[in-house]
């Protein structure tokens, strides 16, 4: 196989991974505009009221004009940030899919990609979310943001690397004994869940607002994972970046 053909297959692989991620990110951002934005507006409304009550801001027309412009900017950023984050997570998804495609169950690339998306959704999103759930504005002390970021990222990394480690371990076992690795991951991540510190910030916002926001947040992120699995599977079937490159299989 010539260098040129290999390079072309590599280029196609990169492009379909990035396109799948970017469009899934657009789905995520669009879903958030419908699902999450009403809760963000309500939460920021509480923040504004707190500013008025404390005297830090005055409830004037000038304030609201500036506020509306500011919120339009943030809402518009939802789509752009969705594409950036979607491309970023999609890049990780593409790496894992390419490395694990032959080991994934399913008789076509769409099923394989959706199964992997489900596994990654669970291990690097939903389990970390259960420990450190998303919060709307009004929840969170600025002084603890670095600590919270470290805790959240650490939990994601631990869960993700543990999943890979126990998957490698499962290859040692045959048949039904492979379930030992699944049990091992479950026990390990449960221990990490209990041992890692909780979010240090107190929730002062109305609990209905916080719960509603969290449910919509999960729905938005879940829409992303379904979309990225579907898009990459479809594009992989269409462009077959592994085909005719024996070493890519």
């Amino acid at each position: 196989m010539s260098l040129g053909v290999n390079a072309m297959k590599t280029f196609i692989f990169l492009i379909i991974v990035l396109i799948a991620g970017a469009f899934a990110g657009l789905v995520h951002g669009s879903a958030n505009l419908v699902l999450v934005e009403p809760y963000l507006d309500e939460a920021i409304g509480i923040e504004n009221q707190n500013l008025f009550d404390s005297g830090e801001e005055d409830d004037t027309l000038e304030f609201w004009v500036e506020y509306e412009g500011y919120r339009d900017w943030q809402k518009g950023g939802q789509l752009l940030a969705g594409v950036i984050l979607g491309t970023s997570i999609g890049a990780l998804f593409g790496i894992v899919f390419a490395l694990s495609r032959h080991s994934l169950p399913g008789n076509n690339n769409i099923k394989k990609a959706l199964i992997l998306a489900g596994i990654m959704w669970l291990t690097i999103y939903f389990i970390p979310f259960l420990k450190y759930p998303a919060n709307p504005p009004t929840v969170g002390d600025a002084d603890t943001v670095v600590l919270r970021a470290i805790l959240y990222l650490s939990f994601i990394a631990i869960s993700g690397f543990a999943a890979v480690g126990f998957y490698k371990l499962s290859k040692i076992f045959k048949g039904n004994k492979k379930v030992v690795a699944l049990v091992g991951y479950t026990v390990f991540i449960s221990a990490v869940f209990v041992l890692m510190p909780d979010n240090p910030d107190e929730i002062t916002a109305p609990i209905d607002l916080v719960d509603g926001f969290r449910i919509m947040s999960v729905l938005g992120v879940s829409a992303y994972w379904i979309a990225v699995g579907l898009f990459l599977g479809i594009l992989w079937n269409r462009f077959k970046p592994n085909k005719e490159v024996p070493s890519f299989n």
Binding site: V36, W73, Q74, A134
Partner: peptide
């Protein structure tokens, strides 16, 4: 930060 503010909250990242 401001551009990504809403997505940051919605995706579960600590924002502020």
């Amino acid at each position: 930060h401001e551009l990504t503010h809403d997505m940051r909250h919605a995706a579960g990242f600590p924002c502020h």
